[in-house]
Amino acid sequence: MFPASFDYVKATSVPDAVSILSSVEDSKLLAGGHSLLPLMKLRLASPSMLVDIGSLSELSYIEDKGDYVAVGALTRHHDVQNSRLLKSEVPILPYVASQVGDPSVRHRGTIGGSISHGDGASDLPAAVLALDAKFVAVGPKGERVIPASQFFVGFLETVLDLDEVLTEIRVPKFSGGWSYQKFNRRAQDWAIVGVAAVSNGSTKVSLVNMGSTPLRAVGTEAALADGASIEEASSKASDGIDPPSDLNASSAYRRHLAEVLVRRALVEALR
């Protein structure tokens, strides 16, 4: 399987990438390529040009910024998974990264690529949503900071403009409990349903593969804020959510899974 023909250019810097994206119609960024290349091989995507940011080493870092940790967009899942700083300050993130695909996928895939791709079935987008992370994006008009809660808008769609580059993910440190529950049938598979829970004063819960974007379990969060028990709060896991049916699970089964996994996540995060 080959992708359709395209032009290829290596970006020399973030501004260089932005200027190519703004001037070449239908051009697309290439980071690790582990979402984009499979889509291109299936001819579900056929950009006219790939702008490769893979060699911009200045976008690969994990830095302590006081109350948050800054993660460069090109940091690979492998490096997030093994970061000592993240393990001590934001332990859910390395754990979730370790659950993505398999070791070879984690050697190539990047956190920025995973978030920009915005797949509701992906692990890291749900994790950063529960963490209330912020994203830094650079475009022709300069830099802007976007809260995770406003970032994911539809199926493989985010608020990033076509000529914007995600450069940094800012994850707040926290000292409370956390849990990530990924339910799949085989090793290496995507989550049929997944749940991320982060307890830091209040408790944030997000859901994987329950809709076209990663979602917050608002029913569960509100119930917890009102002092509900874990049992009660998890029964509201899919309130207001209409999960999809596909070959792995029906909508009703996803609702069932969400309730069970939210309960497990809360038991672990709040113990």
């Binding site: 290439l30 390529g33 499979p38 070879s104």
Partner: peptide, 10 residues
């Protein structure tokens, strides 16, 4: 790495 999911140019 899985070489079916990397471009030669990369």
């Amino acid at each position: 790495v899985k070489s079916c999911t990397v471009l030669a140019v990369q």
